[in-house]
Design a binder for these strands. Sequence first.
DNA 1: TAGAAGACTTGTATTTAACAGC
DNA 2: GCTGTTAAATACAAGTCTTCTA
Length: 568
Amino acid sequence: YHFLKLLISQHTATFTIIRFTLPYLSKQRWEEGKSSDGQKWTTLEHNGPLFPPEYEPLPNNVVFYYSGEAFKLGLASEEIATFYAKMLDHEYTTKEVFQKNFFNDWREEMTEDERKVIKKLSKCNFSELHAYFVNKAEEKKNMTKEEKQALKEDNAKLTEQYGFCFLDGHREKIGNFRVEPPGLFRGRGEHPKMGKLKKRIQPEDITINCSKGSRIPGPPQGHKWRKVQHDNTVTWLASWVENIQGHPKYIMLNPSSKLKGEKDWQKYETARNLKLRVDSIRRQYQSDWSSHEMRNRQRGVALYFIDKLALRAGNEKEDDTADTVGCCSLRVEHITLHKELDGKEWVVEFDFLGKDSIRYYNKVPVEKRVFKNLKLFMENKDPDDDLFDRINTSSDSSQMTVLLITSLSAEDMTVEEKILAYNRANRAVAILCNHQRAAPKTFEKSMQLLQEKIKKKKEQIELAKRELKEAKNAHRERPSDKSKNLVAKKEKVLKRLQEQLKKLQLQMTDKEENKVIALGTSKLNYLDPRITVAWCKKHKVPIEKIYNKTQRDKFAWAIDMTDEDFEF
DNA sequence: TAGAAGACTTGTATTTAACAGC
DNA sequence: GCTGTTAAATACAAGTCTTCTA
């Protein structure tokens, strides 16, 4: 769990981040009146998941070719072929691993006769299939307004029927009420299983969870559920096992639900409690740097990294997944020690792939004792050995914290400036947590557009200034009510233009600074929303300017309970 | 008690809806 | 009203941490 806090005092935006592991905390007696028997609900009723539509066979004029010859595929293998055909202009399909995995899985689903003929992916020609789907997408785009409206209404009906459940008597929104459709697995980074066939889920694969005595959802015609259970120690409504990694998947509630909201609240309360102990935890791990036990030294340094850099814990991973690491799973090859670098002493250079194969690159000056310890941990090891070989994320008291404070301030700000300040604080957190995104494809273009707008606005301002001057002169020469009004009017116009310019410039700054940073994750999962709500109230910033509809729903608990003098 | 299985949160990519500018 | 951009919503993979089981 990662936690952070956003403190925004008088005209000042300040974030404090706290990232730590829960076992350490849950052993403390901080539970906020949470039921100890693990009951998550008393009654639960729902309509089961919504299945994706059955496969629609291709029309006869859309032909698959093998070795240049038309080849009619059976329904099952045709469907799988369409998965690949749809992805043809995606980078994935150029990757060897993807192709290999796809082709292996595809062949497994083929009939004997198909398998006899289709032996090489390179001889397969999906282009007609691809074109067919491109065309279909185009047609969908060109549908009339009425058709689109009808489609929308159909969708709304389904959401109405399947998108809600009753939990303890309250009607709650479900997060993902659709069963995932079949397709090709798209792992992130260099995932060894990319391209494998994600099979169609049948009702017979699905476990339903609801309360005893509730109306049990009916399986689709001619089918039955794998199992119906009544376990109120878990929060999911339905589950199945996906065939790629063999992991369970769940249908759960939307973040706007009471159940999720209370859990979220509890999370931030835990963070709040941690704040009281951060100092002592820091003293502890610093003293561990000189421990005579190697295990303690490693733990002390690992904790320091997590505290200082907001690294993830770094659990052990299964094989057959992309090679990514977190703090505890760092290997010797992921860091380089520099006694001196860029005029700084005791610098550690990090370079590794973290969650979702996002690169973490950072050069960090550290305390001398940390540096010496790292050198010790690396002695007589190969590059692919674990840096922290004596600890793992479940070793005792894995206490991990992070605290960062960035301060941004200004006096007498407009709402726009306040929002920029907020976003900057938000951004400082995202940068620390390495929440990166690829620069949007249209970034340069839209930047240029903004640039032009600003130029235009400046020209307008020049013009307005001249006109104002003229009006003033005219008024001086021949004062009248009319001329006086004109001056006032021109002043007003100029002022408004100047405000608009400022707004545009702020917008541009924000955009530029946000180029490769994703704010969403930290806003949604790390910032205590109560701090944001209090800040909005205090500074008269409408909450809608900070949180969109979804976010307001998710943080309804915070919006309801927080007044302007809330302190984290 | 360690390793596997299970449950739940976090995070990026993709899809869809809303909006601005013509 | 149309079209291209941007923001919101959704999808689902990939983490973390808990609980079960041999």
